[in-house]
Amino acid sequence: MNPELQGALDSLGRIVLGKDRQLRLAMACLLARGHLLIEDVPGVGKTTLALALSRVLGLAFQRVQFTSDLLPADILGVSIFERDHGHFRFHPGPIFSQVVLADEINRASPKTQSALLEAMEERQVSVEGATRGLPEPFFVLATQNPADQIGVFPLPESQLDRFLMRLSMGFPPRAAERALLLEEDRRSMLAHTEPVLDPERLLALQAEVGKVVTAPALVDYLLALVEYTRRHSGFKQGLSPRAGLALRRAAQAWALVDGRHSVIPEDVQAVFPAVAGHRLLPVERERGAPTPEAILNAVAIP
């Protein structure tokens, strides 16, 4: 285990209780320069996770609550005429931040959603003809209510692909929830949590992810997984080459979190459900298509 990252994860684990796996995946996602989608019911600690991440890693944090009347300018920013100076001045929106929590992203109109997603992909924003770079590192943590709730615009399939991972938090285990109830309020806990990493160190770690070795034997395993989803009749279409690249990068990041410089099959297995889950489209909902875990069981490690 990478000591710096272990320290960060320990710190996070004291705030977000009983969710070690999710925390690790979130960390890997951040290191892989990906964005994270958390799909869950309200009140399970999504915002706390985002806040804790930015705090522990020493990153600037902004939160945007998505509503159905939210406009792209509300996220990206707007130029306002300043009478005193006699010209327009750009007021950057909340997206100009290192960690952005896009809360309940599927409540906003598709237009606003796509403004956010484009910024995530390009890591820059074009407003009124000028291109403005977003800060580094840049990490979007979007939350989404389960699609069967009312009043939501589900993210289109092509947009879901923009998120490296999708997690679901789930209710905490009983012991964790007991501690949650016993101990002090998480928010005040956050206030006196010291950052474990700084942005420079984080950028260096992000650069290291790409150098984690993926041996030919491991690439064969990635291919076997991807090909399996393409051959399986339960999916409308299998994983795309981009999904394959995402899977590799996530596995590299996971290996780095684990303190290794080469990927082993378990790394792939650890990130596969989070990376592939939202990219695989079953032909019929909930019928016939195997779960990511079932895929992992079915595909032999070459």
């Binding site: 378990e266 297995q269 992992l296 069981n297 595909v299 032999a300 490690i301």
Partner: peptide, 9 residues
């Protein structure tokens, strides 16, 4: 070792 079982597992 099951087909889908990683070596560490």
């Amino acid at each position: 070792q099951h087909p889908g079982e990683g070596p560490r597992a």
